[in-house]
Design a protein around this nucleic acid. Structure first.
Lengths: 336, 336
DNA sequence: TTGAAAGCGCTAACAG
DNA sequence: CTGTTAGCGCTTTCAA
């Protein structure tokens, strides 16, 4: 592929001048610029980012690490990131951690070898060792976390108010006259899941707590096991009439289990999930849920990163987004 | 970050020797190697890929373009690609075309500026202008297409036998004693959708065609419109008892529409989709479908690309994978 | 407004 | 087995 040198030769200009044209330097006369651009066009010239990166120390690459790409939430975030970054001159590279600390560190390591200028990331559920992340911060590579954030001081982050989301979901169940709530809880070591549980409890506490019974359970996604767990639970607690699941997938899982147990949703039990996954709108009944504003989260995170890339002295930002209650059929008022 | 120079200085060796260590050259004594590695460790040395790329002309980057990342099929393919590429020393960068020719070309263009060594791609449904792709081929950058392939000669590809998949699906409906089949057809300009329709027709032709009625329709995913389309269709053709949808999403859409029309699946009508999307296993009833072996497709495509990267004279390969029938509840035999 | 020249960090002949 | 040396394509002083 033709380089800057060839263009210089053909235009009779120096390397420096040609380079200036492609860097939009104001120090080039319009005439010269036009001449260069014309020849560049003819040669189908494309700047060699590698060379520019090497020389300038700026790779123009932003690395994104997400647990999983096939996920409504994370792919929504990626779309938000793309939207903001696309016209900034930066390139995005995406890696998946598949919820493994090891793969996450491997991804970060490739990012460093690729000399990324900045990183956007959501940590895996498994991540407890932040040494690699701390190394990145020490190396002054700007990094913005979204959704799942490490418990470290002074980091840029965009998160969802999970507590509020859970609160809204639970409040909605209570408003539908549920008196005995069940929370399908996520791993409490994951901070957002703990927050969701707290939101659940606080919503009940705020209400007239004495009249409301509530309990939590965690499931495995092993159909047989969970079937038994739920069956036993409902046998012992036939008064359960409202369920708040910490995620939509597990919510759908519960919905299917309930159907097999002959428990009708929403007439016998109301169910609400969390996340507004694409399929939650396709189930029967459609599942009420909490929307996480994923595109906005990606956009905000990307904006913060770009700000830091422009000016390394930008001060730390921690944004918290408010979730939105999405009411569908699974929490509809009783027919009778 | 410390470079090879610093290591050379600290070990008293030359740049060349240090470089050889990191390139696993056999021309280094174990002692020297150990010494270099030790110092590298201390300095937390990380080779600068940009510099290596510039010098060697090899970026060690593979670009992947898919229409959409939040899609069971494509993310499965990406996982397959990652599996093969992960231990090859290459890095993967992923771009989405969002089914737009323009974004697809933009992605390819960034790939070229980033000096990718090879490309894996599935073209968007909108892509009809192959000039950019042809430019890449002319530039001798190895490219392997998967699933959606441009109609060009001499290109590496891994595709699914869509005709066979549709054939299997239709045959399955016929084996369940369906006598009047409906095909929910995709855009005929997309070759794989045309193939699926042909498979549908051929399966019927192979069977005793005289006793089988069949027809095709296309939907919009606009619920109201489609509701009307289906209603009219079933009013005019109450004998329809088997539906083959060209995709799982549209299949689920149809399933929901049928429910609202009071048409029971599978007792009144049997339904089969295509793609084995993750949600097809979570619906009520669970949707029978055709699995596309996506991980295998990704693995094969990546293997072909790596082969071409190693040896540019590798001859063109075109692999066709066989789909697999997945029988679930939506095509269960009648209860009576 | 333009040009000359140095060099980013690394690789790859070539010579020893 | 190790070292010397000349760039890869581009940016960036500095000087004109």
């Amino acid at each position: 592929m033709a380089g800057i040198k060839e263009i210089a030769k053909r235009t009779g200009l120096s390397l420096a001048t040609v380079s200036r044209v492609f860097n939009n330097s104001p120090l080039v006369s319009p005439k010269t610029r036009a001449k260069v651009l014309k020849v560049a066009e003819e040669l189908d010239y494309r700047p060699n980012i590698m060379a520019a990166a090497l020389r300038s120390g700026k790779s123009k690459i932003i690395g994104v690490v997400v647990p999983e790409v096939n996920n409504y939430f994370f792919s929504g975030i990626i779309n938000g990131i793309e939207k903001i970054v696309s016209n900034s001159g930066y390139n995005i590279i995406i890696s998946q951690s598949h919820e493994s600390q090891e793969k996450e560190d491997t991804a970060l390591n490739s990012f460093l070898t690729l000399q990324v200028e900045g990183i956007l990331m959501s940590i895996s559920t498994e991540t407890t060792n932040y040494s690699f992340i701390q190394k990145i911060i020490k190396n002054k590579i700007p990094i913005v976390f979204f959704d799942r954030v490490p418990t470290l001081d002074s980091i840029n982050s965009v998160t969802l108010n999970d507590h509020l989301g859970a609160y809204l979901a639970t409040e909605h169940l209570l408003n539908q006259n549920c008196k005995h709530l069940l929370h399908i809880a996520g791993d409490p070591y994951v901070s957002i899941f703990k927050e969701r549980k707290n939101g659940f409890l606080d919503a009940i506490a705020k209400k007239d707590a004495k009249n409301i019974k509530h309990q939590s359970v965690s499931l495995t996604t092993d159909i047989k096991k969970d079937q038994k767990t739920l069956k036993d639970l409902f046998q012992k607690n036939p008064s359960i009439d409202g369920i708040f699941a910490f995620g939509d997938e597990i919510g759908l899982h519960v919905l299917n289990l309930l159907k097999e147990l002959g428990i009708d949703v929403p007439n016998m039990v109301k169910l609400i999930g969390f996340g507004n996954a694409n399929f939650s709108n396709l189930t029967q009944p459609k599942i009420s849920t909490i929307d996480q504003e994923c595109s906005e989260m990606g956009e905000l995170a990307a904006e913060i990163l770009l700000k830091n890339l422009e000016n390394p002295n930008t001060k730390i930002e921690t944004k918290v987004l408010s979730p939105r209650l999405v009411i569908r059929e699974s929490t509809k008022p009783d027919q009778n």
